[in-house]
């Protein structure tokens, strides 16, 4: 546990030691704001809620989250520091979890910095703050899901560009798993149970459920187990590379 925390601290500090954190946060806030106000017609809607704001999160995460996750392991491989990290007397799980949690908390910081949106709706009207809190929690859980997928893909390559592109595509598939595009395609030939299973992996449907203000245990378990599975896969991939 101590080792996990030590890795976490180093990794988290490294975001702020370079311009990466600041550039990312500025772009994150800018795109979130631009989408909400211009594409989402935040003012014209005339409703005191952040639904339009949160509605864009899954789509913005598609390219913002792989931008964080791509470096997680690919960068360690490129710089050779992975050889140092993996020959220190710590369990592999500490390295995997420490790095993941640092990225997740960093994403959380960027998300928390959107609080002026929350202040704005509260100034303009009286929104349901319970729904907003649930949406923030849901958005952060969803970011964790994307990050875990991205960490796993980053562990498979030492090329950050490949890590970014592949993560974006895989995250896209997870996002739209429940959309007609995917469901109709599988409905043509697969049995209903299979179609339902694929659809149940949809980030969108789980996130939309939370956005309605209900944090259902099932949605939390979905994101939690998805993160656990992909982190486990990350450790397996690193171990496989060790075997050469």
């Amino acid at each position: 546990m101590n080792a996990t925390f030590t890795v976490f601290k180093r990794e988290f500090a490294s975001y702020f030691a370079t311009p990466l954190a600041y550039v990312f946060i500025v772009i994150f806030l800018f795109t979130m704001g631009a989408f909400t106000f211009y594409l989402g017609n935040f003012y014209e809607n005339g409703s005191a809620s952040l639904a339009t704001f949160f509605g864009f999160h899954p789509w913005l995460y598609l390219f913002l989250i792989p931008a964080i996750s791509m470096r997680l392991w690919a960068e360690e491989r490129r710089a050779g520091t992975i050889e140092l990290l993996l020959t220190l007397p710590i369990p592999l799980s500490s390295a995997v979890m420490g790095k993941f949690f640092a990225a997740w908390v960093f994403a959380g910081v960027a998300l928390a910095l959107t609080f002026p949106m929350w202040l704005t709706v509260n100034y303009l009207g009286s929104p349901d703050n319970g729904v907003i809190l649930a949406s923030y929690i849901g958005s952060w859980l969803m970011a964790g899901g994307y990050l875990a997928i991205g960490a796993c893909i980053s562990a498979a390559t030492n090329n950050q560009v490949i890590a970014f592109v592949v993560s974006a595509v895989v995250c896209f598939l997870f996002t739209v798993a429940g959309a007609p595009l995917v469901v109709d395609f599988f409905a043509n030939f697969a049995p209903n149970a299979v179609v339902q299973t694929i659809a149940s992996f949809s980030f969108l449907s789980h996130f939309n459920a939370i956005m309605n203000g209900v944090i259902d245990l099932r949605d939390i378990i979905f994101f939690g187990s998805l993160i656990a599975i992909f982190l486990f896969a990350t450790a397996v991939l690193i171990d496989l590379k060790k075997a050469g």
Binding site: S14, A17, T18, A79, G80, T81, E83, L84, T87
Partner: peptide, 9 residues
């Protein structure tokens, strides 16, 4: 290790 890798930042 070869090349003395360290966290550059």
């Amino acid at each position: 290790p070869e090349g003395a890798p360290a966290y550059g930042d």
